[in-house]
């Protein structure tokens, strides 16, 4: 039985700015880390591995430096790692990204039972790649898994968070799932284990390794959406700032609340 967990290397900070003259994104610093939501995915995948003796592979798409997150995943207990790296994959939107990942899964693990994803990344924040992957792979998708039960080598019980209700589902493999952070506190890799990891266990997959290696289906060419421009959020100018005594601050508050009929002064009750 094979399980694949999809992880991503993300910037450590969300502090970014737009260069006002060129309109280009300026990222402050180049520190990276594993997308924090992926730790929950790895943790759940490890639980399933434990009861099924499955082979667990971590995959990530990114530059050579993204091997760092694969090493982390292996330090946590994944059996091996796959780096998906090719210039043809650059500039991908959600559709092209999910197609690339799906294409890798179907090319390297035709008999995969379960694909496990974090609920979203902290840089893209779309929470869409997992479900799109499932559609490309023609597998069912179960989102926001917060618990598992009755784990066997042919099926799995999943509790899915649907907002106002929790739904227990039983799913025959194969399937793609995303994992909610409500699943429980995940482990962090120890520095010692991380230093023991052998980078040669990481396989690099390029366009030519995929069953579908038509470059038009990947990267910028395979992306139906384009970011037309980026800009800094603007704020309305309709603002009042009272900078005086506490009494003045209270006067202003009471005036605004009463004029909007939210407060009636002393007889309010």
């Amino acid at each position: 039985m094979k399980i694949i967990v999809c992880i991503k290397q993300v910037p450590s900070t969300q502090k970014v700015a737009v260069d006002p003259t060129t309109g280009v994104l300026i990222r402050s610093g180049i520190d990276t880390k594993m997308n924090p939501y992926d730790l929950y995915a790895i943790d759940l995948a490890l639980q399933i591995k434990k009861s099924t003796k499955a082979q667990l592979t971590a995959i990530t798409m990114g530059p050579d430096s993204a091997k760092a997150v694969l090493k982390e995943a292996m330090a946590l207990g994944c059996d091996d790692g796959v780096l998906i790296s090719d210039r043809a994959f650059a500039g991908a939107d959600v559709l092209a990204t999910s197609y690339t990942l799906a294409s890798v899964v179907s090319s390297i693990a035709k008999d995969v039972a379960l694909v496990v994803c974090g609920k979203q990344t902290t840089d893209g924040d779309t929470a869409q790649v997992g479900a799109e992957m499932a559609a490309h792979l023609k597998m069912p998708f179960v989102g926001l898994v917060m618990g598992i039960h009755d784990v066997t080598t042919t099926s799995i019980g999943l509790t899915s968070d649907q907002g106002n209700q929790l739904v227990d589902l039983n799913v025959n493999y194969p399937a793609v799932i995303s994992v909610s952070e409500k699943v429980g506190q995940p482990d962090l890799p120890s520095y010692f284990r991380l230093s023991q990891m052998d980078e040669t266990k990481i396989k690099v997959v390029t366009l030519q390794d995929l069953d579908d290696h038509d470059p038009n289906h990947y990267g910028l060419s395979g992306s139906p959406t384009q970011v037309e421009k980026i800009f800094e959020p603007t704020h309305d100018n309709d603002h009042v700032l009272i900078h005086g005594s506490t009494k003045e601050a209270m006067d202003h508050f009471v005036e605004v609340m009463t004029s909007n009929h939210y407060f009636r002064g002393k007889d309010h009750g």
Binding site: V94, L95, S98, Q128, A131, A134, F141, T225
Partner: peptide, 22 residues
């Protein structure tokens, strides 16, 4: 919503069309 965020990408990928979240 939680369900919509799973449903929308599942439909968009079937169409091979773009989808913008939130």
């Amino acid at each position: 919503t939680l369900n919509g965020r799973s449903l929308a990408p599942s439909i968009a990928a079937r169409f091979k069309t773009g989808l913008t979240a939130d």
